[in-house]
Structure formats: structure tokens, C-alpha cells
Simulated scan of single mutants.
Amino acid sequence: MQLIEINKARYRRHLNLVIAGCICGLIIGSLAISQTLIGLFPDASGSHFNWNLLGVVTASVTIALLLNKYRSHDFMTEVVYVWELKQTLNKINRKMPRLKAASLKGNADALLAIHYSYAGSRLLWKLDDNTIVMDELMTQQAELDSAAEKYHLTLNADDYDASILKQF
């Protein structure tokens, strides 16, 4: 997955609309479904937990299906890209202890994966205005750059391929 610069304002606007749409869809859908089921199949004891649960589950599944169906729509481009980038970074972070151990031995793939992780994290943190840990990331990036220089490697995030994680 290539790292690309995305329009922060468009991303935030579309993400907020998607979140608001999901929340509204969940509220309206679950209430409509559960109230319809309660009206059709009333419970003498007054407990409608099962119908309410079925309404929430049905609305949630419907929203998930709609999000999946429209994930390739132009409106969802930035939102889906960030979601997929977060998944990619999560895969790298799960292997980070092994990657760091291999990077100390000069493994070029490990150094590249860590570099990609840092570059992707920097991109996400800028999009989310999460600059609190940016100094720590810069320190880690400097350590990585010195390790790459030590082993005479040039790291480019565009060279990263997820298949290199299989060896760790």
C-alpha cells in the first residue's frame, strides 16, 4: 500500500458524515425494526429485550453491508484509504518486537517495514491532529535512520510490500 497525501479537510468532512450517517442509521433502523417487531409480536411479560437486540443487530449488519457496497464510491476514497492504512499499520505493529530485533541485525526488510510504519503513523497523526507523540516518533525515526546508514541502506516507504512481513 502506497502512502499518499490526502486532503485533510475533505477526509474529515467525509469521515464525519459517514460516522453521523452510521449513528443515525443505527438509531433509526434499530428503533424502527424493534418497534415493528414489538407491535407484531408483543410479549405479555413486557420484556422486549430480544426484539430490541434483533433490531440493533439487523441495523448494524445493514450498515456494514452498505459501507462495504459503497466503499469504492468516490465519496469514500479517503475514509477507506485511512481505514486500510490503519489495518496495514496494525499488522506491522503486531510484529514490531520481531522487526526491531531483526533490524538490530541489519535486516533490510525489517528496517523498511519499520520505516513504513513510522511514515504511515506520521501521516495518520497529521490527519487526526495527534501531534502529542510526534516528538517521540521523530526520535525513533532518527534512530532508524542511523541504523539504515550503518548498514548502508536507503529506506523508501514506496518500496514497502506487505509480503515481507511473512518472514517475521
Results as ranks from 00 to 15, higher is better:
Leu85Gln: 09
Val82Glu: 02
Asn93Gly: 03
Met96Gly: 01
Lys100Val: 15
Arg98Glu: 12
Gly106Glu: 11
Ala101Glu: 14
Ser121Leu: 14
Val79Pro: 11
Ser117Thr: 01
Val80Lys: 13
Lys95Gly: 01
Ala101Lys: 12
His115Asn: 15
Leu85Lys: 09
Gly120Asn: 06
Leu104Arg: 05
Leu85Pro: 05
Ser103Phe: 06
Gln87Glu: 05
Asn107Thr: 03
Lys100Asp: 08
Ala119Leu: 02
Leu104Cys: 00
Lys95Ser: 05
Tyr118Leu: 14
Leu99Val: 09
Lys105Val: 00
Glu84Lys: 13
Ala110Trp: 03
Lys91Ser: 04
Ala119Ser: 15
Pro97Ser: 12
Ala102Ile: 03
Tyr81Asn: 04
Val82Asp: 03
Gln87Ala: 11
Asp109Gln: 14
Ala102Arg: 14
Leu89Met: 14
Asn107Lys: 07
Tyr118Trp: 04
Asn107Trp: 03
Thr88Asp: 11
Gln87Cys: 01
Arg98Lys: 14
Ser121Glu: 12
Leu85Asn: 11
Val82Ala: 02
Ala108Gly: 00
Leu99Gln: 11
Val79Asp: 05
Leu99Cys: 08
Val82Ile: 15
Arg98Asp: 13
Lys91Pro: 00
Asp109Leu: 02
Ala110Arg: 02
Leu111Gln: 09
Leu89Arg: 10
Ile92Tyr: 06
Asn107Gly: 07
Ser103Arg: 11
Tyr118Ala: 05
Lys100Glu: 15
Thr88Lys: 14
Ala101Ser: 12
Lys100Ser: 12
Tyr116Pro: 01
Ser117Asn: 14
Val79Thr: 10
Val79Ser: 09
Lys95Tyr: 01
Gly106Trp: 09
Lys95Leu: 13
Ser121Asp: 11
Lys95Asn: 10
Ala101Ile: 06
Leu99Trp: 06
Ala108Ser: 12
Tyr81Lys: 08
Asn90Glu: 04
Ala113His: 04
Leu111Ser: 03
Leu89Val: 08
Asp109Lys: 15
Tyr81Asp: 03
Gly120Thr: 09
Gly120Trp: 05
Leu89Tyr: 04
Lys105Gly: 00
Leu89Ile: 15
Lys86His: 07
Arg94Gly: 08
Ile114Leu: 12
Lys91Gln: 07
Lys100Leu: 13
Asn93Tyr: 09
Trp83Cys: 04
Tyr116Phe: 15
Lys91Met: 06
Met96Ala: 14
Met96Phe: 15
Ala101Met: 14
Ala113Leu: 06
Gly106Asn: 06
Pro97Gln: 07
Tyr81Trp: 12
Ala102Asp: 09
Leu99Arg: 10
Leu85His: 10
Leu85Gly: 10
His115Cys: 03
Ser117Tyr: 15
Asn90Asp: 09
Leu112Gly: 10
Pro97Thr: 07
Met96Ser: 10
Glu84Ser: 04
Gly120Ile: 05
Ala108Cys: 00
Leu104Gln: 07
Lys95Phe: 04
Leu99Met: 09
Leu89Cys: 10
Arg98Pro: 01
Asn93Cys: 00
Leu104Ile: 02
Ser117Glu: 04
Gly120Phe: 10
Leu112Ala: 02
Ala101Pro: 03
Glu84Gly: 00
Val80Thr: 15
Lys105Met: 07
Ile114Lys: 00
Asp109Pro: 02
Asn107Phe: 01
Asn107Val: 00
Thr88Tyr: 01
Asp109Val: 05
Val80Tyr: 10
Gly120Tyr: 06
Ala102Glu: 14
